[in-house]
Lab assay of single mutants.
Amino acid sequence: GATAVSEWTEYKTADGKTYYYNNRTEESTWEKPQELK
């Protein structure tokens, strides 16, 4: 299949934890999204 550009962006909180934000759905998660595995 075609490689889609991930909708997920990786961010870090002030205390250094990583989370992921989906630009399309406006969803955020602590877990690494399936698309990034």
Rank of each mutant, 00 (worst) to 15 (best):
Y19F: 13
K37Q: 15
Y21L: 05
A4V: 13
T3H: 14
R24A: 11
E10D: 03
A14M: 09
T13Y: 04
V5A: 14
Y21S: 03
K12P: 03
Y20W: 15
A2I: 13
A2N: 14
E35K: 04
K17V: 10
K12D: 03
P33T: 01
T9I: 12
T29I: 09
E10H: 02
E27G: 03
Y21M: 05
K32I: 10
T13I: 02
R24F: 15
G1S: 12
W30N: 08
K17E: 09
K12V: 15
Y19K: 05
Y19E: 04
Y21A: 02
G1V: 13
K12N: 06
K37V: 15
R24K: 14
G1W: 12
W30G: 05
E31P: 02
S28V: 15
Y19H: 06
T25K: 03
Q34I: 12
T3I: 14
G1T: 14
E10I: 09
G1L: 14
W30E: 07
D15M: 04
V5Q: 14
L36A: 04
K32S: 04
T9W: 09
K37M: 15
T29P: 01
P33N: 03
S28T: 15
G1D: 13
K12S: 08
T9F: 10
E35Y: 05
G16R: 00
Y21N: 03
P33W: 01
T25F: 03
P33R: 01
Y11E: 07
R24V: 15
K32G: 03
T25A: 01
S28L: 15
E35D: 11
S6F: 07
A4F: 09
G16K: 00
Q34R: 06
Q34F: 11
E10A: 10
T3F: 08
E31Y: 09
A2F: 12
Y19N: 03
S28F: 15
Y21R: 05
P33K: 01
V5F: 12
T13E: 03
L36V: 05
L36S: 06
P33Y: 02
K17T: 09
Y19C: 04
E35T: 06
Y21K: 09
T29Y: 07
K12W: 07
E7H: 07
T18D: 05
R24G: 07
A14I: 12
Y19I: 08
G16H: 03
G1P: 13
T18C: 05
R24L: 15
E7D: 12
P33Q: 02
Y11Q: 10
N23R: 08
K37R: 11
W30D: 07
E7V: 06
R24P: 03
A14H: 11
E31I: 10
T3E: 13
E27Q: 10
S6T: 12
Y21H: 08
L36T: 05
A4Y: 08
E31L: 08
N22D: 02
A14W: 09
T25V: 01
T3M: 11
S6M: 09
E10L: 05
S6R: 08
N23M: 10
T25Y: 02
T29R: 08
T18I: 15
Y21D: 03
R24W: 13
T18F: 09
E27D: 05
Q34M: 11
D15G: 07
K37T: 15
P33A: 01
D15Q: 05
Y20N: 00
E7T: 07
W30P: 07
Y19D: 02
N23A: 11
Y20S: 00
N22Y: 01
T29A: 08
P33G: 02
Q34P: 14
E10W: 05
E35V: 07
R24M: 13
T9V: 15
T13M: 06
Y11N: 05
Y21V: 10
D15R: 00
K37F: 15
G16A: 01
W30Q: 07
E31K: 06
A14D: 10
W8V: 02
W8R: 00
T18S: 11
T25H: 02
Q34H: 12
R24Y: 14
K32N: 05
E31H: 08
A14G: 08
E27Y: 05
K37E: 15
L36I: 08
Q34W: 13
A2W: 13
E35I: 06
V5N: 12
K32E: 09
A2D: 12
A2C: 09
V5S: 12
Y19T: 03
T13W: 03
K12I: 14
K17G: 05
N22V: 00
T18E: 06
E27K: 06
E7A: 06
Y19P: 02
K17M: 07
T3A: 13
P33E: 02
P33S: 02
E35C: 04
N23P: 08
G16L: 02
S28D: 04
S28Y: 15
W8F: 02
K17R: 13
K12T: 14
T25M: 02
T3L: 12
E35F: 06
V5H: 11
A14L: 10
Y21F: 10
R24D: 09
T29W: 05
N22W: 01
Y21G: 03
Y11S: 05
G16T: 00
K17S: 06
V5L: 15
K37Y: 15
A2Q: 14
K17Q: 12
W8N: 00
N23V: 10
T9A: 10
A14V: 10
W30Y: 11
S6A: 11
A2M: 12
K12A: 07
E27A: 04
V5G: 12
A2V: 13
D15P: 00
K17F: 07
K12G: 03
W30I: 07
W8Q: 01
K32V: 08
A4I: 14
D15T: 06
G16W: 00
Y20P: 02
W8L: 01
Y11M: 15
N23Y: 11
T29E: 04
L36D: 08
E10S: 05
E27S: 04
W8D: 00
Y20Q: 01
W30T: 11
Q34G: 11
E31G: 04
T13P: 01
A4E: 13
E27L: 07
T13D: 13
T9N: 09
S6P: 12
T25P: 01
S6G: 11
T9G: 07
Y20L: 00
T3Q: 15
N23L: 09
T29L: 08
S28N: 07
W8H: 00
Y21Q: 05
N22I: 00
R24N: 12
W8G: 01
G1R: 00
E35M: 05
S6Q: 11
T29K: 06
P33D: 03
T13R: 03
A4T: 13
T9D: 06
E27I: 07
E27P: 00
T25D: 02
Y11A: 06
E7I: 08
K32H: 05
T25L: 04
K32M: 13
K32Q: 07
K37L: 15
T13V: 02
G16Y: 00
R24S: 11
S6D: 12
D15A: 06
T25S: 05
D15N: 08
E35G: 10
E31D: 10
G16M: 01
T13C: 04
N23K: 10
E35P: 08
Y20D: 02
T13L: 05
N22M: 00
Q34S: 14
T9R: 10
A14K: 11
T13H: 04
W8K: 00
E35H: 06
V5W: 12
D15E: 09
D15I: 02
T18H: 07
K17L: 11
W30S: 09
K12L: 11
E7G: 08
L36N: 07
L36P: 04
